[in-house]
Design a protein around this nucleic acid. Structure first.
Length: 330
RNA sequence: CGCGGCGUGGAGCAGCCCGGUUAGCUCGCCAGGCUCAUAACCUGGAGGUCGUAGGUUCAAAUCCUACCGCCGCAA
């Protein structure tokens, strides 16, 4: 059986490695994103095809293609040359056209990081954290022209930890995805594979997240903002602007925060996003409309290193009227 | 040539635009004091080539140039 892997980035890498390990010479090709340089510096979280193609080069038999789009006539032609029987997709980042899906003789399967039919789309892990889910998982589906809507082959769930970020959770799910992908491919080697239909009533969406999505909405309850901070980590990161009387707004990334254990400790009129010194020396609290405090643990002002709230306060002493908010206050 | 910010005692910042006394603030550190006691308070102290190299000037942390380093944004 000729297997072609299609995927990008840290989520796809464990699956690719596992498939190579388990099926060795059956793996004949890799389709991944082009290695855009774009002036990428160290620490960039942008996903390119680099990691994947590096893995592929470790195994001489694997042909690599990196089309800008797999759906163009060129992309289709390149894939066709690989003569794939089974296409294994994980976080490829492009929707496959009907034509592409007709190429592999046995079909195409996708490793998706959610318990489908929940969280169809590009950012299932972030949305699961954002919504405060207690668990999520990985689903292997047959790929059909609709987005993440094919029949379910395998599915396994995992708990979401209270301190999970999109990064940490995705890493765990990537490992699970790799095991399930190997199991699914084994089924294909054994014969025809059956799937279960997704229940249309349970479908939810997890659309692609963009940079601007990271702007913190301080009118949300503290618990929601705390989840938001974790969901935006490591990309695009949750950010806000520090407003000080007489100074320009300063962009600040919030890396880590927790909800104060003292519920409803803020009384009276609440100005959204108002900063206050917390219940302990060296803590930074932000008032939320629910009356709770969101305690900021680690943040990063624009152009500076990450720092603890305590360090931040030494350099930017809290003064009356200091608050967080969008770039321009209404 | 993608855009931008920053390098100031151990930490985080101010001062720079509009050059000019002992380079300031919030902490930390050391010594002493106060206190039943403290992450509290008081007094004193050590610790700085203001990233590096040039330039302008009577005078540069501050203006100019180059270089090095750190970071953010650009998916």
């Amino acid at each position: 059986m000729r297997i072609v892997m299609m995927g990008t980035g840290t989520f796809a890498e464990p699956t690719f490695e596992a498939i190579l390990e388990a099926f060795g010479t059956d793996v004949v090709g890799l389709v991944t994103q082009p290695e855009r340089d774009g002036g990428n510096k160290r620490g960039s979280t942008r996903q390119t095809g680099k990691g994947m193609s590096h893995i592929a080069r470790g195994s001489q038999r694997v042909a690599i293609i990196q089309p800008e789009s797999i759906n163009t006539s060129e992309g289709v032609a390149q894939l066709r040359e690989m003569l794939p029987d089974l296409l294994v997709v994980a976080a490829y980042g492009q929707i496959l056209s009907r034509e592409v899906l007709t190429i592999p003789t046995l079909g195409t399967i996708n490793v998706h990081a959610s318990l489908l039919p929940k969280y169809r789309g590009a950012a299932p892990v972030a949305y699961a954290i954002l919504n405060g889910e207690k668990q999520t998982g990985v689903t292997i589906i047959k790929v059909t022209p609709g987005l993440d809507s094919g029949d379910i082959i395998l599915q396994e769930s995992r708990a979401i930890h209270a301190d999970d970020t999109t990064g940490s959770l995705e890493a765990r799910l990537a490992g699970l995805g790799a095991r399930l992908a190997v199991a699914a491919v084994s089924q294909y080697k054994a014969g025809p594979v059956a799937g279960t239909k997704q229940d249309p009533a349970l479908v939810t969406k997890a659309p692609k997240i963009t940079k601007n999505f990271g702007l913190i909405d301080w009118s949300q309850p503290a618990v929601s903002i705390e989840r938001f901070v974790r969901a935006m980590q490591p990309w695009p990161t949750a950010y806000t602007f520090l407003h000080r009387p007489g100074k320009e707004p300063m962009r600040v990334i919030v890396n880590r925060a927790h909800v104060s254990e003292f519920e409803g400790m803020v009384r009276g009129d609440i100005t959204t996003g108002l900063l206050c010194s917390g219940d302990l020396v060296g803590t930074l609290g932000v008032a939320s409309p629910s009356g709770d405090l969101l305690i900021i643990d680690e943040l990063q002002p624009a152009g500076k290193k990450k720092m603890t709230a305590e360090e931040f306060i030494r350099g930017y002493p809290l003064t009356a009227g200091m608050r967080f908010g969008p770039e321009t206050l209404s």
